[in-house]
Design a protein around this nucleic acid. Structure first.
Length: 151
DNA sequence: GCCAACGTTGGC
DNA sequence: GCCAACGTTGGC
């Protein structure tokens, strides 16, 4: 099983929102590398839910991928902030996933705390200038983060 | 195909 | 609000 990290601005959609809903559609990804990672996910794989562009950026908890990848309907919706004018029903390059709530950490694992973990020396999230909103997490990174979150 | 301009992301 | 990083766009 691969594991992942997905970023969201909590003002838009937070882990608390996902917990309340139980499941939600993860959509609006408009970067090809991030989209390719979305497509590479298998059903039931787990991901870290990362809060970005907020007062306390960091990993808030864990979610799970539900079912298969599908075309992102927000790309076709002129009313959506994620509307992609070049996309059509016949040719929609953008991908969405259904996701489920799994776990909220007792407190957000902030970027400064993540930087303290030796296992995360090469973690993509912590690299300067990183803007990718969907990225893979290695098993060693996953284990270290979960241990820090619960410890 | 190059590359400057521009827009977006996201931490601080 | 600032600014570094980086993806995208569009002229040539």
């Amino acid at each position: 099983m691969a594991c992942w990290l997905l970023k969201s601005e909590p003002d838009e959609f937070s882990l608390t929102d996902l917990e309340r809903l139980g499941q939600a559609r993860w959509d609006g990804v408009r970067n090809y590398q991030a989209r390719n990672f979305l497509r590479a996910m298998a059903s039931d794989e787990l991901f870290f839910f990362h809060h970005s562009s907020c007062a306390e950026p960091g990993i808030a908890g864990i979610g799970r991928i539900v079912g298969a990848a599908f075309a992102d309907p927000t790309a076709l919706d002129p009313e959506s902030p994620y509307h992609a004018p070049k996309a059509s029903a016949e040719d929609n390059p953008w991908t969405a996933r259904q996701v489920a709530f799994v776990e909220a950490f007792p407190r957000v694992l902030t970027l400064p705390r993540l930087r303290q973990l030796p296992a995360l020396a090469d973690f993509a999230l912590l690299r300067k200038g990183n803007r990718l909103s969907v990225m893979p997490v290695s098993p060693a990174e996953w284990t270290a983060i979960v241990a820090a979150a619960r410890g």
